[in-house]
Amino acid sequence: MDLLFDHLVHFINRSPAEAAEKMKEIDRHAVIGGKHEKWGTWNSLMHAGLAYIEFLAVNDIEMARHADNELISLLLQNHHHEGFGAICFRTKNISTLRNILLQKGMNPKKVIHAERRLEDGELLQWKMLFIEQQEGELPLPFFIEWEEDSIRLKNLLGRGIIIKSGADEGISSVYFRVKNCKATAAKWSMLLDAKIEEYYSDYTLDSFCCSIIAGGTRLIFAEPAAKCQQSADTEEICQKPFKVCIKTINGKDSVHEIMGSWYEFSKRRG
């Protein structure tokens, strides 16, 4: 599968401009994205190379309620709770990917043709693919095929969406809170053709963890240890991403809690 990690969606209940300002306060370059005119949403972006964080918010609640888009439905479910929502991988051929997912026994939905109106009026277009899943399950990754993929970095640098010093940065890992880390890692490894790396205890998170590498990014599934030890009702666990680790070129190592989620920045060594 020709997958690369594309972006992590951070649901917000404030304006995208305010989210961008929050990132600028910690010396991160963030820009206004634009409006999804057919979905009733708008966004801002913080890139780390071609990978990025999308700060996504509702700006027309009625239009959003009628949007034929799984991500917008998930945003509405979490409308009053800010934080990470889902991850996306990019592909060069989304129709071929859909056929592969069907062969794996998954239930991919139809390919969506999407667009966003930029601040300067330009129309950005792409295709999206979602997988049908059970309610309450960790949101499965979705997939994107960019219209201008081969020259995308050049265009993003030209528009100032990525600055030169950020072109070689990247999202190294994403952490997910889950009910069962082994079962989740097994399902995602099958879905993404990714090898399961290891099973271990993370005492800083008080969790059992299982990780895979997909699209150049490590995905770490963390199962709360306290819940397991107490044999508590794991239905209480809200399954979703909760932390991202970003490799930077400049700046100091730092950790920040921002709008309901955790950001860890570490300077790239060597």
Score class of each variant (00 low, 15 high):
Arg116Cys: 00
Gln239Val: 13
Glu137His: 11
Lys243Glu: 11
Leu75Ile: 15
Tyr203Asp: 14
Ala194Glu: 06
His29Phe: 09
Ile237Ser: 06
Arg65Leu: 07
Gly40Leu: 03
Pro139Gly: 00
Trp126His: 01
Gly170Thr: 12
Leu101Tyr: 14
Trp39Phe: 09
Met190Ala: 10
Glu70Asp: 14
Leu138His: 02
Val178Leu: 08
Glu236Cys: 10
Ala51Leu: 07
Leu101Thr: 08
Asp2Arg: 14
Glu169Cys: 05
Cys245Tyr: 11
Ser73Asp: 13
Gly40His: 05
Glu137Thr: 10
Arg218Cys: 15
Glu264Met: 11
Tyr200Arg: 13
Ile220Pro: 00
Asp27Ile: 06
Met23Lys: 01
Ile161Gly: 04
Arg90Gly: 05
Lys110Cys: 11
Thr96Cys: 12
Phe11Met: 06
Ser95Asp: 13
Ile61Lys: 10
Ser211Phe: 04
Glu236Tyr: 12
Ile196Ser: 07
Ile131Tyr: 02
Thr248Leu: 09
Leu45Gly: 01
Leu192Met: 06
Asn59His: 13
Leu3Gly: 03
Asp253Trp: 13
Gly170Trp: 03
Thr204Gly: 09
Gly33Lys: 03
Phe11Gly: 02
Pro108Glu: 02
Leu138Lys: 02
Arg269Cys: 10
Leu123Asp: 09
Phe176Val: 05
Gln133His: 04
Thr234Ser: 14
Ser254Gln: 13
Glu197Gln: 15
Val174Pro: 02
Gly160Ile: 11
Trp39Cys: 01
Asn155Tyr: 10
Val178Asp: 00
Asn107Trp: 07
Ile163Gln: 13
Gln125Phe: 07
